[in-house]
């Protein structure tokens, strides 16, 4: 007799057979976050010295993508209770009732294990270890611990989103150096102004869900000041690849111009007061473009020629 015909007991009632579609499971992977992870990992891979076979490079990117998606699924499993309280997340597969929490947990754990093991078997151990640590950091350190306990949650937790270029670099070289750490630092210091700008205009959501985001705990004025301070740290870091000789004049021009754009918007955010939140929305949107341009130009300026030569070799 199969499990279905016996009926699976769940909370004392017979659980309904799942109506989850493939699309619901893909939504658990947070495709938008995943796309940024893939892109930054690709840049790490492209700027790294040495050679890598295109199929190996594809395998590395695939594993990093699946690993990032798996941590997104585990995040949605753990945060289902607060996701249903926020308008931004209420329609996700678990609060929407389309995927059961246990299904998301099994999905996330399976993909995590597969992505790490395949990366270790087919690429190298260092990149697999970094991917495993990234998944652990995002799920356990950020989601389970920091997110609900401190307003510094996204500052420390932001490290998880900053690891992919290091994994890409490690996939090529099997080692670590200062350059991928600099890419890590750029994403690390980019996360607070990016996410706090969103948190200000979504403050009611976070307050309702009881998530101690900085604007909820310390107030809006403190958050706007912190956004400005982190942007002041971010802009020189964004220019650093040129200053340290890792990139050329094209990167210098783009990082200076877009950095000035970030600074102008951060000053506007600092001066703006509720009920207006236009400057926060502008900074949030521009910060995505800023990071994309920095990494895209770095890849073109520094890594593209090398990557093409390696693929052709």
């Amino acid at each position: 007799m199969s499990l279905i015909s016996e009926g699976a007991e769940f909370n004392g009632t017979i659980a309904e057979p799942s109506l989850a579609t493939v699309g619901d499971y893909l939504a658990l992977l947070k495709p938008r976050v995943m796309s940024l992870v893939v892109f930054t990992a690709l840049v790490g891979l492209a700027v790294a010295p040495g050679s890598i076979h295109p199929v190996t490079a594809f395998t590395a990117l695939l594993c990093i993508t699946v690993g990032a998606g798996a941590s997104g699924a585990l995040n949605m499993w753990f945060d289902a209770d607060i996701d249903q309280l926020m308008t931004r997340t209420a329609r996700r597969p678990i609060p929407g009732g389309r995927v059961q929490p246990g299904e998301a947990l099994a999905f996330g754990l399976t993909l995590s294990a597969f992505s790490v093991v395949v990366l270790g078997l087919l690429v190298n151990i260092l990149s697999a270890a970094l991917l495993a640590f990234t998944i652990f950091f995002y799920v356990v350190v950020y989601t389970m611990w920091l997110k609900r306990s401190t307003p510094q949650n996204i500052v420390i937790g932001g490290a998880a989103g900053a690891f992919p270029p290091m994994i890409g670099w490690a996939a090529v070289t099997g080692s670590m150096s200062f350059e991928p750490i600099l890419l890590f630092l750029i994403i690390f210091f980019w996360t607070p102004p990016h996410f706090w700008a969103l948190a200000i205009y979504r403050m009611d959501d976070f307050r309702r869900a009881g998530v101690p985001m900085l604007p909820v705990v310390k107030g809006e004025a403190t958050t706007r000041l912190q956004i400005l301070l982190y942007t002041l740290l971010l802009v020189p870091l964004g220019i650093a690849p040129y200053a340290l000789g890792y990139a050329g004049l094209l990167y210098a021009a783009v990082s200076v111009v877009t950095g000035l754009g970030m600074l102008i918007l951060a000053v506007q955010v600092y001066r703006e007061r509720l009920p207006s939140d236009q400057a926060c929305r502008h900074l949030f949107a521009f910060s995505i473009l800023y990071l994309f341009l920095l990494f895209a130009v770095l890849m073109v300026d520094r890594g593209w020629g090398g990557l093409m030569a390696r693929l052709a070799a």
């Binding site: 057979p17 579609t21 499971y25």
Partner: peptide, 20 residues
């Protein structure tokens, strides 16, 4: 003996998951 009988929508969803 009859157990849970899947609806057409549930069968379709299960089939799409199996194919994936």
């Amino acid at each position: 003996e009859k157990g849970i009988v899947l609806t057409e929508a549930q069968k379709r969803a299960r089939r799409s998951r199996s194919i994936a």
